[in-house]
Every structure is written in structure tokens, then in C-alpha cells.
Simulated assay, not measured.
Amino acid sequence: MGKMVEILREIGMIARALDSISNIEFKEVDLIRGQYLYIVRICEHPGITPVELADMIKVDKATTVKALKKLEKIGLITQTVDKINKRTKKIYPTAKGEEVHPFIARENEYSNRVALDGFTEAEAQQLKDYLERVRINIEDDWYHVEKGNQRIY
């Protein structure tokens, strides 16, 4: 591929803009700094483990544990010890967490609608497919670095 197309800057700007919007809009439900991502995934996957959640969101385990403590403190989630593997915790939304989830989902649907304005359904699907391929390409490096390794340039 000739000159590299600079898509990561565009993706970064989109992500930061949406994150800023969400941080402002979700203050009224006590969510800050991307915590809404955790609530959505926990509501979609009740009983998920911290390791599974970290992998799903693509953040390190320490960041996930810290976010979970804050979410538990404000009463949006609960963590229980797994009955089979006592070293593993299972995460569940509380009733308060379940109440917040539709608000977050509504914001996500709106942001998707705004982002895809002027796209045909086929173009939107193609964009999703391309971005999925980009994520898959980057995932191996993420796993490699997340385990404490360095990438070779």
C-alpha cells in the first residue's frame, strides 16, 4: 500500500469527541471517565468476570478493577465470588445499574445515528466491516503489549 492513509487519527478524534460528550451527559447518573462502557457490557453480560470484561473493552486488568470498585461504591454493580472457582469474581448490575443502562443505550443509538448520517445501509455495514478488520489487526499487538511485551517496529 503506497502512502499510508492516516485513519487512526480520525478514529482517535471520533472516540475522544464521543467520550467527551458521554462524560458530560452521564454526569447526571454519576458516571465519569468511560465508566459507562463497563455498565453497558455488564448489563449485556451479567455474571461476566473482570478478566473477560477487560478483554472485551480492551483495557488492562488494573484499570478494570479500579473502575469496578468505583461502580460498586456508587451502587451500580455488585461482585460475587464464583461458586466453582473461589478466586474468580462474577459481576452483576444492581437495580440502579439496570435503570442507568437504557439511558446509556439511548445515547449510543443516537450517536450511531448522527455518525452514520448520510450513509446508506450498505455503506454503514461496509464501514463496520472495515473497522472490525482494523480492530482484529490491532488485537494481536494489544494482547502482546498487555502481557508486558514490546512491539518490534
Score class of each variant (00 low, 15 high):
Gly12Ser: 12
Met13Glu: 12
Met13His: 12
Ile14Ala: 05
Ile14His: 08
Ile14Trp: 00
Ala15Met: 12
Ala15Arg: 11
Arg16Ala: 08
Arg16Val: 11
Ala17Leu: 15
Asp19Tyr: 00
Asp19Asn: 01
Ile21Gly: 07
Ser22Leu: 10
Asn23Pro: 04
Lys27Trp: 01
Lys27Gln: 12
Glu28His: 00
Glu28Ser: 04
Glu28Thr: 03
Glu28Ala: 02
Asp30Phe: 04
Asp30Arg: 08
Asp30Pro: 01
Leu31Arg: 01
Leu31Phe: 06
Leu31Ser: 00
Ile32Ala: 08
Arg33Thr: 04
Gln35Cys: 08
Gln35Tyr: 11
Tyr36Trp: 10
Tyr36Met: 04
Tyr36His: 09
Tyr38Arg: 14
Tyr38Gly: 13
Tyr38Pro: 11
Ile39Ser: 05
Ile39Phe: 03
Ile39Glu: 02
Val40Ala: 10
Val40Tyr: 09
Arg41Ser: 14
Cys43Ile: 10
Glu44Ala: 15
Glu44Gly: 11
His45Val: 09
His45Arg: 15
His45Lys: 14
Pro46His: 05
Pro46Ala: 04
Pro46Lys: 08
Pro46Gln: 04
Pro46Tyr: 03
Gly47His: 06
Gly47Ala: 13
Ile48Arg: 01
Thr49Leu: 11
Pro50Tyr: 09
Pro50Ser: 10
Pro50Gly: 13
Val51Glu: 15
Glu52Val: 14
Glu52His: 12
Glu52Gln: 15
Glu52Ser: 15
Leu53Met: 09
Leu53Asn: 02
Ala54Trp: 02
Ala54Gly: 09
Asp55Glu: 10
Met56Ala: 14
Met56Cys: 07
Lys58Arg: 12
Lys58Asn: 02
Val59Lys: 14
Val59Glu: 12
Asp60Val: 13
Lys61Val: 06
Lys61Glu: 06
Lys61Ile: 08
Ala62Leu: 08
Ala62Asn: 03
Ala62Val: 07
Thr63Pro: 00
Thr63Arg: 01
Val65Ile: 07
Val65Arg: 09
Lys66Cys: 02
Lys66Ala: 12
Lys66Gly: 06
Leu68Arg: 01
Lys70Asp: 06
Lys70Asn: 05
Leu71Trp: 02
Leu71Ile: 02
Leu71Asn: 03
Glu72Tyr: 05
Lys73Val: 06
Lys73Arg: 07
Ile74Leu: 07
Ile74Ala: 05
Leu76Ala: 07
Ile77Asn: 03
Thr78Arg: 15
Gln79Cys: 14
Gln79Ala: 14
Gln79Trp: 06
Thr80Met: 10
Asp82Lys: 06
Ile84Tyr: 07
Ile84Pro: 06
Asn85Leu: 06
Lys86Tyr: 13
Lys86Phe: 11
Arg87Ala: 09
Arg87Gln: 11
Arg87Trp: 07
Thr88Glu: 05
Thr88Tyr: 02
Lys89Glu: 01
Lys89Arg: 05
Lys89Trp: 05
Lys90Tyr: 04
Ile91His: 01
Ile91Leu: 05
Tyr92Pro: 07
Tyr92His: 09
Pro93Tyr: 04
Pro93Lys: 03
Ala95Tyr: 11
Ala95Met: 15
Ala95Gly: 12
Ala95Val: 14
Ala95Ile: 12
Lys96Glu: 03
